[in-house]
Nucleic acid binder design. Structure first.
Lengths: 140, 140
DNA sequence: AAAAAGCCGAGTAATTTTATCGGGATTTGG
DNA sequence: CCAAATCCCGATAAAATTACTCGGCTTTTT
């Protein structure tokens, strides 16, 4: 029941872009160095994020990536959906998908996964990147 | 962000044991046939569930498996923890584990995963097998 | 004794995820 | 105009995980 490394690192990278939001585009190499991640792996992640419209890119020297919207307007859930696909504990309860398996009535367990999915989306969609950078580390 | 096939099928199988709770031990072959699953794969699942004390087994002819406790007293979360390990969206926030990565302060994203983990556990631990077999399919 | 079950370690296959490669395309600064 | 910095991107290799199988053993009932 894990988020993928793509998802985890994507959220971290987005957090950095949120921190640097006012400073203009940040080059990938910097992020990679800062988080100790493979440049090329991050590249893949950013490709997806850009295509999904969550970040913008500037090519060439002095280029880099920046959030497409302010940190307050980007939810963690959005990032995760782009990188890991729909938030769904089992295939047959993909978001917006209420009957993929064709044996709804027979499937007593379905309700579990729907409830789980809904609560997962709920948490992830109520946290924005602004929350992430403003929350003190030990607010548990 | 998926539960494994082991987890999904394990919950299904446990649901059947819940339905048959008053009828005595159910043989694996029956469950496998009923759910269209591989007998041998189910065997592995049941081995884990039994070792974890969630089910009991009776060997020999007329044998089979049964819930170790009544359906009201077995939470879906317990089943899932046995089969899929601790409920934790990323490794560093394993349940009961508050500092594995050693860079807590630096890790702004950690709070996300903790909140997610807590809500996931919450849902899964508030649903018992009795709920699963008593909830009408379309209570959405 | 034979059939019906569960027990179990070890091993293979399939799938998914992670990561790398190699070469392009743009932009800036000298 | 050239060189360096940077993003673009399809393809593919490597690694990890997960799913599943095998084979043989033990226990209980009839």
């Amino acid at each position: 029941m894990r988020v993928s490394a793509k998802g985890e690192n994507g959220v971290r990278a987005m957090t950095i872009l949120a921190l640097e939001f006012r400073a203009g585009p940040v080059p990938l190499r910097e992020i990679a160095a800062r988080e100790g991640l493979s440049y090329q792996f991050l590249e893949q992640i950013f490709l997806l994020l850009r295509r999904a419209g969550l970040i913008t890119s500037v090519r060439g020297a002095k280029g880099g990536y920046a959030l497409a919207r302010p940190p307050e307007e980007i939810k963690v859930g959005e990032v995760l959906r782009v990188l890991d696909g729909p938030i769904a504990p089992v295939e047959c309860v993909g978001e917006g998908n209420s009957d993929a398996c064709g044996r709804i009535a027979a499937c007593l367990t379905r309700g579990i996964w729907e409830r789980l999915r809904d609560r997962m989306s709920e948490v992830l969609d109520e946290i924005t990147l602004a929350d992430v950078i403003n929350t003190p580390a030990d607010s548990t």
